[in-house]
């Protein structure tokens, strides 16, 4: 089980690398540098010569190669989990990750073949973040700390923390979707100054692009407020819960860095490295908030020690899961 945890950690790192590669594709405007899919310029993608990975092809084809690798890793992930994991819901999450990566691949192909329609590209960006968050969650669920530790904190004892912790990933994901909408509708510089908007607190005129951009800024304010409130609450009420304070403080730092990167993205005129870092840090922020939320609500998952249940699993499955086919 420990090796599965290490493997999942590797999968999570690979998924983050894939998000960086995807961010580079859009930041460099290379989304259509390879006009066909799944082939690359008529060649089977794995046979495409490295020497021809030039210009925008380097980013787009590189993204496809990393995506294929993540796809293969995900097949391994879901099968490995199915074989060794005694918790049914974790096995289901493994298959969900596989389904997500397949759909993500299809979305990537469709968005190329239909010239980057915004709804598909935004869905592709959003699902990428969900997939990464899912793999990070699986990494958490298979970690020794999660599996062996009994819930040290009961969310029902602190409703405020429970709600803050649940709100954070939801609001952050909404913020990511707004960012993806901004990115894929060309509204990244709809408001060209920062922190003001055209020299005013509120934009003096409104277009769809300005509205999306401004909403993303308001969203950043909401995310920052929630992150600070969560960290402050933990500091004052649960200072000793290191498994909660650590991700909360990390979340706060990430959010502040992310706000800085957002401002820098605007002020630099969407400089490629800054713009891409903004996407990547957004993903890590979402994953961190999810880890915190899961740890706060650790008691919902009961005794998550898979090994202790393993012995009784055949009996449990025989009673009520006849339709659940285990590969």
């Amino acid at each position: 089980m420990r090796w599965l945890h290490y493997y999942l950690s590797f999968c999570a790192a690979a998924s983050l690398l894939l998000i960086v590669a995807g961010g580079l594709v859009t930041s460099t405007g290379s989304g259509l540098a390879v006009p066909d899919w799944p082939n690359t310029y008529g060649t089977f993608m794995f046979a495409f010569p490295l020497s021809q990975m030039v210009g925008g092809i380097f980013y787009e084809h590189g993204h496809r190669l990393i995506a294929s690798t993540v796809g293969l890793l995900t097949i391994g992930l879901s099968v490995w989990i199915a074989v060794v994991e005694p918790r049914r819901w974790v096995r289901r999450l493994g298959w969900t990750a596989l389904a997500a990566v397949v759909i993500q691949g299809l979305l990537g192909g469709i968005t190329v073949l239909y010239f980057l329609p915004a709804p598909i590209s935004i869905s592709h960006a959003g699902l990428a973040q969900l997939f990464f968050a899912l793999v990070v969650s699986l990494t958490l669920f298979t970690s020794p700390g999660w599996r062996s530790g009994s819930p040290a904190f009961a969310a029902r004892d602190d409703r405020v923390l429970s709600r803050l912790a649940l709100a954070a990933p939801v609001v952050i994901f909404g913020q990511i979707l707004l960012g993806a909408t901004m990115r894929h509708t060309g509204a990244g510089l709809a408001i060209p100054d920062f922190p003001l908007a055209f020299g005013h607190l509120l934009p003096p005129e409104w277009t769809a692009g300005i509205a999306i951009h401004f909403a993303h800024r308001v969203g950043a304010l909401a995310v920052t407020t929630i992150a600070l409130a969560t960290a402050g609450h933990l500091l004052f009420h649960h200072r000793e819960q290191r498994e909660l304070t650590n991700p909360a403080f990390l979340l706060t730092v990430l959010v502040l860095v992310q706000v800085g990167l957002g401002a820098w993205t605007v002020l630099s005129g969407r400089q490629v490295a800054v713009n891409t870092a903004h996407v990547a840090v957004g993903a890590v922020t979402l994953a961190t908030s999810l880890v915190l939320a899961l740890r706060v609500h650790r008691s919902w998952f009961g005794d998550a020690s898979g090994d202790s249940r393993r012995a009784s699993r055949p009996a449990v499955e025989a009673m009520g899961s006849g339709s659940e086919a285990r590969a």
Binding site: W95, A99, V102, I103, L106, L107, I110, T111, L113, Y114, P117, A118, P119, I120, S123
Partner: peptide, 21 residues
Amino acid sequence: RTLWIIVSLAAIVVAGACNSR
């Protein structure tokens, strides 16, 4: 059932993409 869900989602996505054109 899982397979059908995946196929259905893919079909919806394709339809959405076609409409966006």
